[in-house]
Amino acid sequence: MASDSARPGPLSAALPADPAGTEAPIRAFWRRAVLFVAIGLLIYGAFLAIAEYRVRQTGERNPLFRIATVTAPPDVVILGASHAMPLGFEEIGPALEAAAGRPVMTLAIEGGGVVPNAFLFSALLRKAAPREVIYVLDSFVFLSPQWNEERLADSGLFARAPYDAAIFGAIMAEPAAWPVLAGYLTGFDKVNGMLHLDIDRSEAELTRFDRVYRANDQIDSQRIAYLFPAGGDDLVATYVAGIERMIVDAQASGIRFRILLMPAPPRYSERLPASHTRVMSALTEMLERHRIEVIDHSGLLQDDENYYDTDHLNRQGALSYATDMLGPLLADTGPPGSSGD
């Protein structure tokens, strides 16, 4: 670094030498620049057309794709984070619909807290109103913007979002989504991801869904520490208010809104920290005020053979849950006011 015997020669600048004054043909430069940009835009437009076509051809699970391409109003919509995602995997979705006897659309997203789910709900309402919303509740999403504003601002979320007026409207209506507006309008995220459009399924569904978890204390503790870091309680009220707005909107549209606590193994639920309890007590008061039913299935499917990791249902667990537990429950309770309210 400092050996003056090996000192670089004259401190050669990175730039070329000064051109001969400012008499350079500036007008010609701008003409070339405009032509270069115009050709570039044409090429980009071609890429964008291909990317949009591929998104529409290969779209499958992505919630924004499902909203954009919805043809008939779904009867039941399931919102939530990764715990709810298996309800839409492969044969689980059809099995759930068969058991419920009603069309069910799962819009859950990995790491999706209240803010991204409210966004999805807002986009869906612009297209079609379901008869019922099942919100799969995870207490950890009330503790950090990571699962909320930051997740919604994640441009990757929009990489498979087709152009759609409802999605555009939802972006405009939610300030937390504004950072992705430019990417969505220019289609940059789609073009950026156009080489990775083969399979529109989550990594969990593709590689882990058939696994059976072998309990490990260290991994369980790490998982809880990751989901429930210290602090963050100050945000609970904000996100409880967010879910309350969803409930008010749903009720105003005549949509039944229910909260679902998914099955969780005891080695997971017994480790839940005090912040979980605080979130649940803050929610309970609000849910009671709005007379929202809470379906507590957290005590079901307690064996590890039903989970592919610390806390997510595997194929066996999800199938059993969809056909024997959630499906019949959705079938029993019809439209709003019929029962359970």
Binding site: M1, A2, S3, D4, S5, A6, R7, P8, L11
Partner: peptide
């Protein structure tokens, strides 16, 4: 020596050369 004096993070190397070395 060539790596540090003439090729990697040259501005920092110059800094350390002129103000410390």
């Amino acid at each position: 020596s060539e790596f540090w004096s003439a090729r990697w993070h040259i501005s920092l190397s110059r800094w350390f050369r002129d103000y410390l070395y």
